[in-house]
Simulated assay, not measured.
Amino acid sequence: MTWATNPLFTPGEPDEKKDATDVEARLQHDSGNTTDLTTSKSDEWAFKTPTDHLTRRQAVYLFVLDGIVSGLIGAGINFGIAYATYHTQDAVRLFVLPNALAADTGFTLLAQFIITWWAECFVVGWHLRTGVVPSIGFFREPKSRFMRWYFYLDDKQPQELRGFKPWFSLFFGNAIRSLILLAIFFPVVFGATIGFLTLVGTRRGAEWYYDVVFAPQIFKLVFGIVVGSICTPPMAAFFLVRCGWIMKAREGAGGMQSVEEISSTEA
């Protein structure tokens, strides 16, 4: 995982000793091939220049590839879980445990946010490194301590994750950030969901009841689509924006070039 997409790494001085070691190792590995021997592995990735506006490619990536596709995947998983959970139950209610759709909604939001954020960390990182999508470069880098902490802009960490501690920090740190984003979405999504469920349920006293066979499965199917489509794009944008800030910082310090800059230099 390279500097631009590893959330634990921020811009720093190039490691000249490591670069020299890499070049020497490549010379020993293939003494007959002298093409681009001074280019480190991180420079071989096809990073694109950060954009100064939201491009069509970025919009399609965020709202179609990330939003809709994530929604469909979430819908399938939620539907399968709902079918396995509810089809053998005697009753499905809104608030009273067990088999309460309100509790299921809260747990699903928690699990889907954390899992989706982790997935986006690696998927978007790979797409940035391979040039599938350029990073976003039209936002100003934040100055507040909280925002710089949230976007991993001040933590000095190694470029590679080796050992248990860096990987634990990676997963724990991203989980915390996904929960912060969840805190923003939760009141709106949870409130709207409960309101909708009161409209489609059968009220008996202070509780609402639902058909065991169809209602929870269809609900979780639709819920997965909505949550995935709405909440995944901001997660993907987090890594696109952060990568843009770090690429600009590294380029300004004479660090890693984008694929466009490398191509123009070779030409």
Rank of each mutant, 00 (worst) to 15 (best):
W3R: 11
N6Q: 07
P14A: 07
E16A: 09
D19E: 14
A20T: 08
T21A: 15
A25V: 06
G32I: 09
D36W: 05
S40M: 07
F47M: 08
F47H: 11
L54N: 00
R56W: 12
R56A: 14
Q58F: 10
Q58V: 11
D66K: 03
D66H: 04
G67L: 01
G67R: 00
G74T: 07
F79W: 13
I81P: 01
A91C: 09
F95G: 03
D104G: 13
F107W: 15
I115M: 13
I115Q: 04
A119V: 13
W126M: 12
R129L: 12
G131Y: 01
V132Q: 12
P142E: 06
Y150C: 05
Y152P: 00
D155Y: 03
P158E: 12
Q159S: 13
L161W: 08
R162L: 10
N174Q: 15
R177F: 09
L182I: 03
A183M: 05
A183F: 07
A192W: 00
L197P: 09
T198D: 00
T202V: 12
A206C: 02
V226T: 05
I230Y: 11
M235G: 08
A237W: 05
F239I: 02
R242V: 02
R242T: 09
G244E: 02
K248M: 06
G252A: 15
E261D: 10
S264E: 11
E266N: 06
